[in-house]
Design a protein around this nucleic acid. Structure first.
Length: 119
DNA sequence: ATTCTGACAGCAA
DNA sequence: TTTGCTGCCAGAA
């Protein structure tokens, strides 16, 4: 690597964040995934919190991240509060044909999309 | 430098 | 069954 770029500890490890963004953007329309599934796909299994953390930074991303398609393992819209209005996430999901009940996706299991299986 | 939090998940009681 | 605590990694104060 010539330069070898030893700056592994860059100011921002965009590698991890970018990976989360890409996987999230790869989620097909009308489908959803869970934090643990993405974390596991990235190799950081168990660190599902990092996935949510990355999505938290998704606001800094130039591209739109369908974070509303990412919910916790319970199918609960835990991050809806980060969409500005707590109803935005649910609106988007319902718009895609999801059935939300009490902030929870009833068809979660049906619409579940696992990157480790699809990718 | 150290400490705490954070859009979770898994396990114990 | 539900509730609570811990562990994971990274970033911000």
């Amino acid at each position: 690597m010539t330069s070898s770029t030893p700056k592994k500890s860059n100011s921002l490890n965009e590698g991890f964040f970018n990976a989360v963004y890409e996987v999230t953007k790869k989620v097909p329309y009308g489908r959803i995934t869970s934090y643990g599934a993405i974390a596991r796909y990235l190799g950081t299994a168990g660190s599902a919190r990092m996935v949510g953390w990355a999505l938290n930074s998704c606001h800094s991303q130039p591209d739109f991240i369908p974070a509303h398609r990412v919910v916790n393992r319970n199918g609960l819209l835990t991050g809806k509060r980060h969409f500005g209005n707590s109803t935005t996430m649910q609106q988007l999901l319902e718009n895609e044909g999801f059935v939300i009940k009490d902030d929870q996706i009833t068809n979660f299991k049906e619409k579940f999309w696992d990157p480790t299986l699809e990718l």
